[in-house]
């Protein structure tokens, strides 16, 4: 009954050749917004420094040359800075990298130079509406597109066929599970997702209270044939067998 309803998930499964499935951990607008903020900060600092240096050297170079160079620097910083980083090996601007994000194609492959150009040049569209007296894009359109699409894509992402994913996720604090006393073979054949659940029970049991452990284990009474603490230790033994002895 439950399986017929399509369930919402933040992971996106992609089937590769030979039935191999990879899952992309799609990233939502909030971490991406923070990455954007960091990027804008970096760009701003670099531009201010470059402008000051060029303005000082303008005394020697002549004012026209210096202002031309400053405009070039502005151009490259605002249009090519993200392209340069995202087309590179890591597929992420410094801000994205510090948030653990990365840009990939919807198929999970690294993005090409052309895609980096498309998605970053369309930043102007995503940045609308502009605030007139501040040269700051509000990113209103981008945010709206992000929230309205299934894979949190802004307009540039939709045009280039890219998504932003979590590249690395900080390890969760884990409480070590109690050491297994013995290994037991499950009496029935388990499906893959059931094996996963049994193993997850052992790995995360350290985070639960004793009572809660017994409560969860009681739901699998058909598997263990036991109640309470005895059931818990039966599941632990089965998980041990599934992980080590098989």
């Amino acid at each position: 009954m439950e399986d017929t309803v399509s369930r919402i998930d933040t992971l996106q499964a992609i089937e590769l050749a030979e039935g191999v499935e990879v899952r992309l951990r799609i990233a939502g607008p909030l971490p991406r917004g923070m990455a954007l903020g960091i990027d804008m900060l970096i760009q701003g600092v670099i531009l201010v420094v470059v402008t000051i240096v060029l303005a000082i050297s303008g005394i020697g170079l002549g004012w026209n040359v210096a202002s031309g160079l400053i405009m070039l620097a502005w151009f490259f910083m605002s249009w090519w800075f993200p392209v340069f980083f995202e087309a590179g090996k890591r597929g992420a601007t410094p801000g994205k990298r510090s948030m653990g994000l990365r840009v990939v194609q919807t198929s999970g492959a690294p993005i090409t130079f052309g895609q980096a150009v498309v998605r970053n040049f369309l930043r102007v569209v995503d940045g609308m509406p502009m605030i007139p007296w501040l040269p700051i894009p509000t990113m209103g359109f981008g945010l709206a597109a992000c929230l309205a699409t299934k894979r949190f894509q802004r307009l540039g992402d939709l045009a280039a066929g890219t998504v932003v994913i979590y590249d690395k996720v900080a390890a969760e604090p884990a409480v070590p599970a109690p050491p297994p006393m013995d290994a037991a073979r499950p009496l029935v054949v388990l499906r893959p997702e059931e094996v996963q659940a049994v193993v997850a029970f052992r790995e995360r049991a350290g985070l639960w209270s004793e009572g809660r452990r017994a409560e969860i284990a009681d739901h699998a009474r058909e598997l263990t044939g036991d109640h309470g603490a005895a059931g818990v230790s039966r599941i632990m033994a089965m998980a041990h067998w599934l992980q080590e002895k098989r």
Partner: peptide, 14 residues
């Protein structure tokens, strides 16, 4: 902290 997903999986298994 409560292992909801494991509980549901065990329920389905049962």
């Amino acid at each position: 902290i409560e292992g909801w997903d494991v509980e549901l999986a065990f329920r389905r298994l049962g």
